[in-house]
Amino acid sequence: MRRAGRGPLSRLGLGAALAAVTLLAACAGGSPRPTPAELPANIAMIGVRQAWTARVPAVTYPLQLSVQGNQVALAGGDGSVITLDAGTGRETGRASVGAPLSAGVGSDGRVQAVVTRSNHVVALAGGRELWRHRLATQSYTAPLVAGGRVFVLGADRSLTALDGRSGAPLWKLQRPAEPLVLRQAGVLLPFGNTLLAGMAGRLVAIDPDNGNVRWEAPLASARGTNDVERLIDLVGGVSRQDSVVCARAFQAAVGCVDAASGNLRWTRPAGGATGVAGDGQRLYGTESDGRVLAWRADTGDRAWVSTLLQWRQLTGPLVLGRSVIVGDGNGLVHMLSREDGSPLNRLSTDGSGIAATPVVAGNTLVVVTRNGGVYGFVPE
């Protein structure tokens, strides 16, 4: 049970019954999601065609796609991990961890890593399992595979570093846990020889060798009077342009940080639950009510807003060429103008809802649906 645009919640350490009570209380205070307005006829201002399609098992968890060159790694909810050639849709690798997933896929092009619902990090290479390591907490963020290590962001805002060859623990950064956590991907990415992670409403820079914190930049602070209202966390994905990293704090704000110094550049109130994307001139995001917003990257001032897709349960955005691309809950992919948000094209899939923020690999736009449809679109 969830409000439109809000991420599912989990309660740590108090059991499923208490978590269900909290969710029921959260839902009871809201109103039904309005019915979206009919879309206008599609007028294709940009030529795009479907080049191929593939299938994976149904996606029942917060999928993140991993792109390495022309290869795209993705996984079904049952634990099947598949690599596709984005140019042809041909399967180039397949493995299975034998259990349902809660997070994935992370990859450096050689090693792939996912997290199971039983809290095991599983590393794969060449279609076989390398190792698995049990976490002390849940994780809904794809592991980061980099520098011969695997980094895992826990739902309790802990960060664990594992040896990429053996899975042996190297260090762990533990932060104060909150009563509720989001069951969706958080922020975890490399910046030079630094890890950047979202912990509560802060972007935190961490030494990857020992887990020491180098700096913290607050994008938002907790507000409200109960656990649901006070829930604050950064959500994936992020925009990185040179040293500037921009992210969203769940249902609270968007903001940008100079990752070289840790200085906060700006924040602005925003009511969305998905990540952001940028092009150096503007930052783009989708609000919980389906509005698509653009902010000026230098000041945070609003550049434009589109209400065309209100109440359509949008994914986070992808910036590609002239377009800002978002998927919706009815399996449609919308291409909007970066300049003013006007529609440029609309693409159809299987109608089951887009499961993850679309990605681009090589010359191909790759989209995955909840029913496991994988679609490759290319320019005409």
Rank of each mutant, 00 (worst) to 15 (best):
D298A: 15
G198E: 09
R322A: 14
F377G: 06
V122R: 11
E287P: 00
R230N: 12
D298H: 05
R132P: 02
D156K: 08
V257H: 12
A123I: 04
L196S: 12
L189K: 11
V235P: 13
T137S: 15
L219M: 09
V213I: 11
G109I: 03
G275V: 05
R338Q: 12
R312D: 04
E287T: 08
L182N: 10
L180T: 02
D233L: 11
P176I: 01
S239E: 04
M1L: 09
E38K: 11
V152R: 08
G224L: 08
G353L: 11
E129V: 09
R132Y: 04
S306V: 01
L314F: 11
A197N: 07
A19L: 00
A86E: 09
G164M: 10
T267K: 11
A277L: 02
R230C: 01
R117I: 12
V48H: 05
G5T: 06
I43N: 14
A37N: 13
Y61P: 06
A355C: 05
R370L: 10
A41N: 09
V115K: 10
G329R: 08
G327P: 09
M199K: 07
A142G: 07
L173C: 09
L314I: 01
T92R: 06
T307N: 14
N70G: 09
T35E: 15
E91P: 06
W266V: 04
V115L: 08
A4Q: 14
